[in-house]
Design a protein around this nucleic acid. Structure first.
Lengths: 350, 350
DNA sequence: CTGAAAGCGCTAACAG
DNA sequence: CTGTTAGCGCTTTCAG
């Protein structure tokens, strides 16, 4: 068993109070006593018991981060930034993988297993706004992504409609007319996919092109394999219409870089040249997209800022007396990064 | 403020003891009382305070996972598996990124900030065996990777020498003779890189080839950019010797898939054909390597088993009365997965 | 089956 | 500047 503050006090011949002061610097201590106490601490290898401290303080110094899956590059990168940012604020992060399970998300919010976290950053997959009411006023929550919090929690996200519009417009500007989309998730009320689809259609219509339903490919997950499958469907004429001459797309806007990389994989496998025969745009700016061949043109959200802002929101709430702040709805900047998959920065497209 | 067990007891007209029994099922409770208590719990929205419970129990139910960086696909994937495995054991995982900082690693082991974790799984970067003595007998620790624990902690790893030998031998079997290596870390006492280098040299010598120092390229980190740079050096004749005719390698064994992908990137950029002009083998079997063009031949460690075994070790220690078990040293299986970067499964190589 | 009470380790009033 | 003490919320002997 490890030694307690009392043990140290005993050994140093002072009161627990004084030891506490030495440890936390909460009140001045005579240099001489200080040294004696420090010595006792070192000898006993004393380490404060955080459970006791938390119990006393009513705060644990731990925040939760809930994401669908850690092995997804985008979430991994974001998690890394959030962990760093949290450390800067002396918070520890516990990670939960929800695996896109609505119940798992709900359970986190209601704190089923008991209170451990001072706050929660969640990137919801299938969460309904109403689920938030359960936690309202109890656990400070920040949502990442498109779910509408209904004023019950802070939200940090990019403008997905505008971003998707830009991505699609970029393809149109490079002279593509048969632009497909990969990544819709009609079975979920997943806001993010809906927003990106909206931006995609808006850009097409502005260019006088009517979106074809068959060229909006749904996926069940956002992995490379899903992108590969969707691309195969498109090339197999999954999107062709009778009397259409079996036309296939000359461009694809994938709702994530992983999907884009999967699409690229299929293109390579089928001998479709990228960008000559098919231009591809992704979303997220994950590192794989910078080193693929060709590099993936992508919408790059400012992830650093997402992390920083999310934790700022949380801090405001955690340290606010009664958690009665109005809900923030923060939009983080993004930019389009043009790479080889759409012909590269300087090039006209083909 | 949220309500406590006492509040529930008061409301239900029973003693705290009974409420505790209902919550934990630690002792039988009359059905009627049970219902009354449950009702009170629901009405008050009672959630047990884990800090208090931890204080009482002397255990927190939290384990730490320390890895160099979360945004690295290998670590992200491993972290995901560990988190899942931990949940299966009703543990929560806190994640620390050490960023390859020896002090950060040391601080974790000594529990500088105080005791929170019941145990620690650490993938050390620059840790010395002696650092483990500080924590010996205090915090149960499992090491992932090649650092020798000196009997002070459990260790779970693949046989890196054998694996590197297999990878290199595979290249030799495909007819390559000028096999370079990327990923040495001479500035660190990093065991993993040393082991892989040893396996690489062993395979070469067995084939009657003397390793060239100039073809063993060091890196400072294990990212794609490092692999790209090292590959460029090799192609620029960084490894050529006077009178050597400026020969460049016809194969590369990269100590990680990320490095391999970087090398592949450079090859593409320079117009070097893979696998015709240059064969590439990586290590880790990350998803990007399955979808790159061509796919990366790689050594695939059984990550699922790493996660499962690491947590089994930890559990044994955490729940053992005095943490006096002998240190385990577990070797996890691996296998070579042949893909396009070395000519594919069936092919002879070119 | 249920109640009363002690105590886990720490901090912060309140004295001195 | 330092000692004394109460109590955070929970579990768990010990009685009943």
């Amino acid at each position: 068993m490890s030694s307690s503050l009392k043990d140290v006090a005993l050994r140093a011949g002072v009161s627990p109070r004084t030891v506490s002061n030495v440890v936390n610097g909460s009140a001045p201590v005579a240099e001489q006593t200080r040294l004696r106490v420090q010595e006792a601490i070192d000898e006993l290898g004393y380490r404060p018991n955080l459970a006791a401290r938390s119990l006393r303080a009513g705060r644990t110094g731990i925040i939760g981060l809930a994401i669908p899956e850690l092995h997804s590059p985008y979430f991994a990168e974001l998690a890394g930034l959030l962990v760093d940012e949290a450390r800067r604020r002396s918070w520890t992060v516990i990670i939960d993988q929800t695996s896109g399970d609505p119940d798992a998300e709900r359970r986190l919010l209601t704190g089923d297993g008991g209170r451990v976290m001072d706050g929660l950053v969640i990137s919801p997959w299938a969460l309904e706004a109403q689920d938030l009411t359960a936690t309202a006023g109890t656990l400070p929550v920040v949502l990442l992504g498109e779910r509408s919090p209904g004023g019950l929690a802070d939200r940090v996200a990019v403008d997905n409609v505008a971003a998707a519009d830009e991505a699609t417009t970029h393809l149109l500007e490079r002279g593509r007319r048969r632009v497909a989309a990969i990544g819709l998730q009609p079975h979920l009320e997943n806001g993010t996919a809906q927003q990106r689809a909206a931006g995609y259609r808006r850009a097409l219509r502005r260019a006088g092109i009517e979106p074809r339903a068959a060229w909006e490919r749904p996926v069940t997950a956002l992995h490379r394999s899903d992108g590969a499958r969707a691309m195969a469907e498109l090339l197999d004429g999954g999107g062709s219409v009778i009397g259409d001459g079996g036309a296939v797309p000359d461009a694809v806007f994938a709702f994530s870089d992983e999907l884009a990389l999967g699409a690229l994989h299929t293109a390579h496998a089928r001998g479709v040249r990228v960008p000559e025969d098919l231009a591809i745009v992704g979303f997220d700016d994950i590192e794989d997209g910078r080193f693929s061949h060709p590099g993936i043109t992508t919408v790059s959200p400012d992830k650093q800022q997402i992390a920083a802002r999310a934790l700022q929101c949380l801090a405001d709430r955690v340290y606010s007396p009664r958690n009665t702040l109005p809900a923030h709805d923060l939009t983080v900047p993004h930019r389009l990064i043009v790479r080889g998959s759409t012909g590269g920065p300087g090039d006209g497209g083909r």
